[in-house]
């Protein structure tokens, strides 16, 4: 069909959508009161996401209670209950929670974003990404928890390395239109197997190789070398939270940077993996080709990379969001409601 859709255009990515569960704020409040006190050191948090599973709604990057360490101090018996949960792929993040609204606004946002982008670049060049690919999705949250008013101000950033010149789009189509029926069936089976094994279910970046006999296999990034040659087709796959048919989601951005920096590839065939009802759906998944060139100064590490990724608020402004949980957290409100 429309093979040429977007040909030569700048490839545009749909930003992650953040969502914060009430449980996160409950746990942050206890952490602040019982453990952190006035300490404003950054806290490691874990965000969770999954591939898109509904044709009208993108998946979010969510913070839940489990995103923060447990307050009680008692190490939970089950070491890592979230691991292997296909609907909760963990993503490393960092939280800067300030003590006052003034210090919240005084945070040097540009620099914080740059610091995270540098970590991503370091993980790319050190090879860490091949072992822990979710580090490509590293994110940042700044917050001010006003515990007197049960009000939380917060702002997410999803740092992306800015390629200059930006990647351009050669083609983009639904995967089912690109592959033959045999290839589609084989890839669907392979994806469903990858997603149902607890070892791989939450691994969001992978390699798709399709042999001449139409047989598709999915391999971890570290198998890249052994995927070379043999004349098979090689695609770079990722869990795509975006539901939009015209644009890939945010994870592809740093993935492309990784592919061109680490593996020196300039024409990248990518696979935006999406699901329907929890099963691989190649009708809504996308296959595209991007043309990428790695900036010279990155590889020579002469300058820090440019980064982007602060999330706009609900009205599209680049500013923080605010949630007031007085109704559900304030003991006085609760008592009044129960009376």
């Amino acid at each position: 069909s429309d093979l040429g859709r977007g040909q030569g255009q700048i490839l545009r990515f749909k930003l992650f959508d953040s969502q914060v569960d009430e449980g996160f704020w409950w746990r942050l409040s206890s952490l602040k009161l019982d453990v952190l006190g006035l300490d404003q050191s950054p806290v490691n948090v874990t965000g969770f996401f999954a591939p898109c599973s509904h044709p009208r709604v993108s998946q979010r990057l969510s913070l839940l209670a489990e995103s923060l360490p447990e307050v009680s101090g008692e190490q939970s018996a089950s070491s890592d209950p979230a691991h292997g949960n296909r609907n909760r792929c963990p993503v490393p993040g960092i939280l800067y929670n300030t003590n006052t609204l003034e210090s919240f606004h005084a945070l040097d946002k540009k620099n914080l974003l740059k610091m995270e982008a540098e970590k991503i670049l370091l993980d790319i060049s050190s090879g860490k990404v091949e072992e822990e690919c979710s580090s490509l999705l590293r994110f940042l949250v700044i917050s001010f928890a006003d515990l007197k008013k049960w009000t939380f101000h917060y702002w997410f950033a999803f740092p992306a390395l800015v390629l200059n010149p930006p990647a351009t789009l050669v083609s983009l189509q639904p995967a089912s239109e690109v592959f033959s029926t045999e290839e589609t069936d084989s890839l669907t089976t392979a994806c469903n197997e990858w997603r149902s094994s607890s070892l791989t279910a939450d691994v969001p970046f992978f390699l798709v190789s399709i042999a001449n006999n139409s047989r598709a296999t999915i391999r971890p990034l570290r198998d890249w070398k052994s995927c070379q040659g043999d004349g098979q087709k090689l695609l770079y796959g990722f869990y795509d939270p975006s539901h939009i048919m015209s644009n890939p989601g945010w994870p592809l951005r740093n993935f492309l940077a990784f592919i061109c920096l680490r593996w020196k590839i300039e024409k990248v065939r990518f696979f935006c993996y999406r699901e329907k009802h929890g099963m691989a759906d190649l009708g809504s998944s996308l296959v595209g080709e991007a043309s990428v060139s790695a900036p010279q100064d990155w590889t020579e590490r002469r300058s820090a990379p440019q980064a982007t990724g602060w999330e706009p608020n609900a009205s599209g402004k680049l500013t923080c969001r605010t949630v007031n949980l007085k109704e559900s957290m304030d003991p006085v409100s609760l008592a009044v409601a129960a009376a």
Binding site: I10, R12, F13, H105, D108, K110, T151, T308, T322
Partner: peptide, 21 residues
């Protein structure tokens, strides 16, 4: 809730990034 807009954009985050949808 303080009006966040009044804080303006001192960080100059508004650089238009061509690859952001």
């Amino acid at each position: 809730i303080p009006d966040m807009a009044s804080y303006g954009d001192p960080d100059n985050l508004l650089d238009v990034d061509p690859a952001t949808l």
